[in-house]
Computed example of a mutant assay.
Amino acid sequence: MELDRTDKRIIEELQKDGSLSNLELAEKVGLSPSPCSRRVKHLEDSGVIVGKAVLLDAEKLGLNLTAIIQVSMDRHTPDRFENFDKTLEGYPEVVTCSLITGQAADYLVEVLVTDMAHYQEFLLNKLTTISGVTGVHSSFVLRKIINRTAVPLDHLSR
């Protein structure tokens, strides 16, 4: 989809604050409310905007440990990957899961847990019990340097 300058400004403002009213958004991007609303609806209908979310402070909720886990599978078959994917969807600790290449692992999984005991329970009673998992390598986040949720738009032609 081709985005013009106004579409990009709308997206940038919504990425900063998804709770903006249509009136507030229209003022920020220099449109009247009706055209602004139509543009947002078009961006939603075309799939560019897929939803709106509330961002939380995980530590204030007691989720103090982030683990990055590389997971290796025994076979690279569609049924193995499908089973792994569906199983992980049911684990609330999983924040992101990506099928990767260029590493010894097949998946990169980010989990958010309360502490090391919670992580151990997740690892031993959930992750390693999934059929086909042959290896895991865990790393723990000491400090997040950059933690963006916005999709960069700079690469799009202006």
Rank of each mutant, 00 (worst) to 15 (best):
L55C: 12
F140H: 07
T77H: 13
C97W: 08
R143L: 13
C97E: 12
D74Q: 06
K86V: 08
A58D: 08
P92W: 02
E59W: 05
M116V: 10
K86C: 02
K144R: 10
L124D: 11
D106F: 01
M73Y: 00
A104K: 13
T66F: 00
L99E: 09
F84M: 14
L142R: 05
V133E: 06
Y91P: 00
F81Y: 02
A58R: 01
G132K: 10
V113D: 03
L63N: 05
G90L: 08
L124E: 11
V141M: 08
V113M: 11
M73W: 07
L99C: 02
K144F: 12
A105T: 02
L124T: 09
R148M: 04
T134S: 14
V136M: 09
T129C: 11
R75D: 15
C97K: 11
I145H: 12
T114S: 15
I68V: 09
S98I: 03
V71D: 00
I68N: 00
Y119W: 07
L108I: 08
S98P: 02
I146Y: 07
H137Y: 15
G90K: 12
K144H: 13
Q103I: 04
L112C: 01
L123I: 11
Q120N: 09
L123R: 05
E82H: 12
T149Y: 05
G132F: 13
D85W: 02
K86D: 04
G135Y: 02
R148P: 00
G102C: 15
M73N: 00
I68Q: 01
Y91N: 05
M116I: 11
V95A: 09
I145W: 12
A58G: 04
K60W: 04
V111Q: 03
K86I: 02
H118L: 08
E121N: 12
L108D: 01
D57K: 14
D74C: 05
I146K: 09
L61S: 01
L63F: 15
L108N: 03
I68P: 00
D74N: 08
I100S: 07
V109H: 02
H76P: 00
L124S: 13
E110T: 11
D79R: 04
D115M: 14
L127A: 08
R148D: 07
T96F: 01
T149P: 01
K60D: 13
I68M: 01
L142M: 14
I68C: 05
V109M: 00
A105S: 15
S138N: 09
L88W: 10
L63A: 07
S72P: 11
Q120L: 12
A104F: 15
R75V: 15
T66A: 03
L112E: 04
D85H: 05
E121R: 10
V111Y: 00
T101E: 15
I100P: 01
S138M: 06
D57R: 13
K60T: 10
L88P: 10
F84S: 09
T87V: 12
T114W: 04
V113L: 06
H137V: 14
V113N: 03
T129F: 15
P78K: 09
L127C: 01
E93A: 06
G62W: 08
G62K: 15
T114V: 13
A67V: 07
F81S: 01
A117Q: 14
A67H: 11
F84W: 10
